[in-house]
Design a binder for these strands. Structure first.
Length: 763
DNA sequence: AACGTCCATGTTTTT
DNA sequence: CATGGACGTT
């Protein structure tokens, strides 16, 4: 690598002298110190100097972080605003803020507590001019980022087939993750793309952003770093400002974030990073596990505290997870031990189970879910954690046919939906008429008869007169350049925007938004759309207007939305959650289902192809994260056959299945696969994956689910074609087909559905 | 300017 | 298969 991202010009200053008088003593029975184990206590009370807390899964990391903040504040070592606490997600930030507030009350409001991006934004607003931005710059989301890059590429005549904008965007982001501004990127970087012009396009992209008075997410960090490094007095100001730094999920930091932290920590050197190298699963977006491994080199004399008492999972679960992750090299090495007392007889081993195909897998998992539920547990205490989004489909289908409520986490987020982004563009344009991206997005949505020619003219006029697009459009309308139809449409649009803008001060902003959506015809457009998802979109627009009421004014709203792009978590109903393993990090469930443990799926073929052993180890960490989400029970499943892109493939069990330690795992396989007899089993026997699984230790045939009550059911159904049956939800119907315990039934009212035989009764 | 058709493509994702 | 983007047609 031509540029060492870690090479800073200045070295660390010696530790700052302690404030005269010293900190106030804190009573040992202070509420936040209660119930901490010795390691946690050490992590909480070692507040001066650099500290690295290696905290394994379920070892009380958040507790330590919040207690530590409380401790710093209570001992009067620093004022709240002198403490910086950084997280990666808004969710984590919110949770931490809440928990600190529970301990110390209102002062928690004054902490600098937030995501890297939101804190950078706060700092950067004050120094925007130093990076060529106005203090009112906008933060673009990924959608807008891509559009800007596409424009740049188009202008540069780059073939978007040979060099997909997405790919280039990814490269630029990785550069930004490494704190590389265009001038620092090595000339050979990304050379294969865009005819070797990747770096040049990066520069152009940055210029274009500046022209738009905008920056992207990566810039929030990058620009802040630039500001820090460009002006020593600014850096000193912030270094002096923050007396104590706390970092959550340190293993996820990228180089830019690392540099940012290192700069800010330089003066007082009170930095505490909490992380777990075994849970580093984001290297593909620039996270550097190296940051955690090199901590004590950068902060000589750093205290390292290991949290190894796990208060979440049973010993079997812990041991299974530990045994798996032990296959990774280069770990910092923690040994998780159970911090809970368990009744040795009551706890179950981690179960693995081979099934015939994805459908059988979904059927099995949902049966187990219902069994656990009948055992008295809440659906919300169970999760299906998948490797990739496509895996959710089969489970959803199964859950729907069986009528088990579920929730898929991580679909398209509210503010990323098309209709919301369009509506936001309207609001943005009304709020700031110079917002060219917003203008472009919606000039012709709904259709106003503008084509490429008309859009071109607007752009040309804007460049000629050096005015924003909206203003250019206004001028264009006044002339006779445009054909009548586009001209009329554009005139109306320009006029509308002007009118809405004049209402900004007089009309409540939520009401204004509603007016805009109505008068623009945007809402109407969706109402007239006969697509099945159109009504939902209209709903979403209403929700957007409702969300607006939560904010004081339009600018505040727009400001927040850029950074807080979250799903509005609906009322917590009792539902099974389906989500990706990545999404599950930091969460816990009583029961965890881990489907699709097959080679190529998990570990994902692409991870291996792209980064080899490194990729494999990250996949293994992902598996580790998955298992350690569980408190009580884990069921790992893998199918012999899977349809991928509509092609049936026979699958090998994941190597991770074999890597699980036998002593803590109960291995099972579906009947048909091992007993022969069923027509498919011959193929199964000959399949290399099966012979491998078959020779695995302790494999035995699955009877009923071991965690009871078992729906021990005959493999052959009791139902015959033509039987009249009754279903609780769908009513009466006629059996059309029987497939094992699965029936296809033509319901009199509900149509034809596939259901489990256990859900219907012969009339 | 709007609609249709063909082809490539197919992880993980916060801000 | 199913979606999205590019391109060509009306």
């Amino acid at each position: 690598m031509p540029t060492d991202p870690f090479a800073l010009d200045d070295d660390f200053a010696p530790p700052a002298p302690r404030t005269a008088g010293g900190p106030l003593p804190v009573a040992p029975d202070a509420p936040w110190l209660k119930g901490l184990n010795p390691e946690q206590l050490e992590a909480v009370t070692t507040v001066d100097g650099p500290v690295l807390v290696l905290s394994g899964a379920g070892t009380g990391k958040t507790k330590v972080l919040t207690a530590r903040l409380a401790h710093i504040l209570a001992s009067r070592r620093a004022q709240p605003w002198q403490c910086l606490a950084v997280t990666f997600t808004n969710r984590a930030a919110r949770e931490m803020k809440q928990r600190v507030a529970d301990l110390v009350g209102p002062p928690a409001q004054d902490l600098w507590l937030g995501t890297f991006h939101s804190l950078c934004l706060r700092i950067l607003r004050r120094h925007a001019a130093m990076v060529g931005l106005g203090s009112d710059f906008t933060v673009l989301d990924s959608d807008d980022q891509l559009r800007v890059l596409k424009q740049v590429m188009e202008a540069e005549r780059i073939d978007s087939k040979a060099s997909p904008p997405q790919a280039l965007m990814g490269i630029i982001q990785r550069w930004k993750d490494r704190a590389l501004t265009p001038d620092k990127v090595g000339a050979e970087g990304g050379s294969e793309l865009a005819g070797g012009r990747a770096r040049e396009l990066y520069r152009l992209y940055q210029e274009r952003l500046r022209g738009l008075n905008a920056c992207d997410f990566g810039d929030l960090l990058l620009h802040t770093l630039t500001v820090f490094l460009a002006d020593a007095s600014v850096l000193e100001h912030w270094q002096g400002h923050f007396h104590y730094l706390l970092v959550d999920e340190y293993q996820d930091t990228n180089v830019a974030q690392y540099l940012w932290l290192r700069l800010l920590a330089q003066k007082h050197r009170n930095i505490c990073c909490v992380g777990d190298d075994d849970q580093s699963i984001y290297s593909w977006r620039g996270a550097e596990v190296g940051n955690i491994l090199r901590f004590d080199k950068d902060f000589p004399g750093a205290r390292v505290v290991r949290l190894e008492s796990n208060y979440r999972s049973t010993p079997h679960i812990l041991a299974a997870a530990s045994g798996l992750i032990a296959h990774n090299g280069g770990r910092l090495g923690k040994t998780l031990r159970s911090g809970l007392s368990h009744d040795a007889d009551a706890i179950e081993k981690v179960r693995t189970r081979a099934v015939w195909d994805g459908e059988a897998e979904a059927r099995l998992v949902v049966e187990e879910i219902e069994a656990v539920q009948r055992g008295g547990e809440k659906l919300a205490s169970m999760a299906i954690l998948v490797r990739a989004g496509f895996q959710t489909r089969e489970f959803e289908e199964r859950l729907i046919t069986t009528g088990v409520p579920y929730r898929v986490v991580g679909g398209p987020r509210f503010y990323e939906r098309l209709e919301i982004r369009d509506a936001m563009a309207y609001l943005r344009l009304v709020n700031s008429p110079a917002d060219g991206l917003a203008f472009e997005r919606i000039v012709n949505t709904p259709k106003r008869g503008l084509g490429e020619a008309a859009i071109q003219s607007i752009h040309i006029r804007a460049r000629q007169d050096n005015v924003p697009l909206l203003e250019a459009a206004r001028r264009l309308v006044a002339g006779d350049e445009l054909k009548p139809k586009p001209r009329q449409g554009l005139a109306k649009f320009v006029e509308d925007v002007g009118r809405w803008r004049s209402l900004l001060d007089s009309m409540p902003h939520a009401e204004l938004a509603a007016t805009i959506l109505e008068e623009s015809g945007y809402q109407e457009m969706w109402r007239n759309d006969k697509a099945p998802d159109a009504p939902g979109r209209v709903e979403n627009l209403k929700e957007l207007v409702a969300a607006l009421e939560e904010y004081d004014d339009l600018p505040t709203f727009l400001e927040h939305v850029a950074l807080v792009m979250e799903n509005d978590e609906k009322a917590e109903l009792d539902r099974v959650v389906i989500m990706t393993l990545h999404g599950a990090k930091g969460l816990e469930f009583d029961t965890v289902f881990l489907p699709g443990w097959e080679e190529e799926v998990f570990p994902h073929a692409r991870a291996l192809a792209e980064t080899g052993t490194q990729g494999l180890e990250e996949e293994r960490r992902l598996a580790y994260v998955g298992i350690t989400r569980a408190k009580k029970r884990v069921l790992i499943t893998f199918a012999a056959n899977r349809r991928i892109y509509n092609q049936w493939k026979s699958q090998l069990p994941s190597r991770f299945v074999e890597e699980l330690p036998d002593a803590h795992v109960e291995r099972m396989a579906d009947q048909g696969l091992y007993s022969g007899g069923l027509q498919e089993s011959r193929a199964a026997w000959n399949d290399p994956g099966w012979s491998r699984a078959r020779h695995g230790a302790q494999t035995r045939q699955a009877a009923a689910p071991s965690w009871k009550p078992a729906p021990a059911r005959d493999p052959e159904s009791d139902f015959k074609l033509g039987d009249r049956v009754f279903h609780d939800k769908f009513g009466n119907g006629t059996v059309l087909a029987v497939d094992g315990n699965k029936l296809e039934i033509a319901f009199d009212k509900a149509g034809t559905k596939k259901v489990l035989d256990s859900y219907v009764a012969v009339v």
